[in-house]
Computed example of a mutant assay.
Amino acid sequence: MVNVEEFAKRLKIIIDYYEISASLLAEKMGIQRSSISHILSGRNKPSLEFVLKILKTFPEVELYWLLNGVGEFPKQTITKNQHPPLSFTDDSKQTTKLIAENIPDNKKEDEIDRIVIFYKNGTFKSYFS
């Protein structure tokens, strides 16, 4: 179940992030201003339709963050020509080398360009050789 108080705090974060008023938020979402006011005050719980309208209006809002505070806001969206910032450690080349050394001899003629590890939370790490 969604904690209404915490949901209202996250809705306020969205309003502050976009530097808009509650009434402008309502206008962008195509809903009545009173709906925003009632949710922010804790009087009403957000409906599924309300949550879906937020996600449609603001694609940077992550569903799990909005409902439970888990995740991040704004979520990082990656377009076709964009690459997320990568963090490298000193052992990234070492890791690539170790993996390459464990490939059977008949496959060593192909050089490894990069290794990408995908995590269940949607993030990943990329190691370049």
Rank of each mutant, 00 (worst) to 15 (best):
residue 3 N to L: 10
residue 4 V to H: 04
residue 5 E to A: 07
residue 6 E to G: 06
residue 6 E to F: 05
residue 7 F to R: 07
residue 7 F to G: 07
residue 8 A to C: 05
residue 8 A to K: 06
residue 10 R to I: 04
residue 11 L to W: 02
residue 12 K to W: 04
residue 13 I to A: 12
residue 15 I to M: 07
residue 15 I to S: 08
residue 17 Y to F: 09
residue 19 E to I: 00
residue 19 E to W: 07
residue 20 I to W: 02
residue 20 I to Q: 09
residue 21 S to E: 03
residue 21 S to W: 04
residue 22 A to N: 04
residue 22 A to Q: 14
residue 23 S to W: 05
residue 25 L to S: 10
residue 26 A to R: 08
residue 29 M to T: 03
residue 29 M to G: 07
residue 30 G to V: 05
residue 30 G to Y: 06
residue 35 S to T: 15
residue 35 S to A: 14
residue 37 S to F: 07
residue 42 G to W: 09
residue 42 G to C: 07
residue 42 G to A: 07
residue 42 G to K: 09
residue 43 R to C: 01
residue 45 K to E: 00
residue 45 K to A: 09
residue 46 P to W: 02
residue 48 L to A: 10
residue 49 E to R: 06
residue 49 E to M: 02
residue 49 E to N: 07
residue 52 L to G: 03
residue 52 L to Q: 11
residue 52 L to M: 12
residue 53 K to M: 13
residue 53 K to G: 12
residue 55 L to C: 01
residue 55 L to S: 08
residue 58 F to Q: 07
residue 58 F to P: 02
residue 59 P to C: 01
residue 61 V to N: 00
residue 62 E to K: 15
residue 62 E to M: 14
residue 64 Y to E: 15
residue 64 Y to V: 08
residue 66 L to W: 12
residue 70 V to G: 06
residue 71 G to K: 14
residue 71 G to Q: 12
residue 73 F to S: 09
residue 73 F to W: 02
residue 78 I to W: 15
residue 78 I to K: 15
residue 78 I to H: 14
residue 78 I to F: 13
residue 78 I to R: 15
residue 79 T to P: 00
residue 82 Q to S: 02
residue 85 P to Q: 08
residue 85 P to H: 05
residue 89 T to N: 13
residue 91 D to S: 14
residue 91 D to M: 09
residue 93 K to G: 05
residue 93 K to L: 01
residue 95 T to I: 13
residue 95 T to E: 02
residue 98 L to D: 10
residue 98 L to Q: 12
residue 99 I to Y: 14
residue 100 A to I: 01
residue 101 E to R: 14
residue 102 N to L: 12
residue 103 I to E: 09
residue 106 N to F: 08
residue 107 K to D: 08
residue 107 K to P: 04
residue 107 K to F: 12
residue 109 E to Q: 05
residue 111 E to H: 10
residue 112 I to W: 03
residue 112 I to F: 00
residue 113 D to S: 01
residue 113 D to W: 05
residue 115 I to V: 15
residue 115 I to W: 15
residue 115 I to D: 13
residue 119 Y to H: 01
residue 119 Y to I: 06
residue 120 K to F: 03
residue 122 G to Q: 08
residue 123 T to V: 07
residue 124 F to I: 04
residue 124 F to C: 11
residue 126 S to R: 15
residue 128 F to E: 02
residue 128 F to M: 03
residue 129 S to W: 06
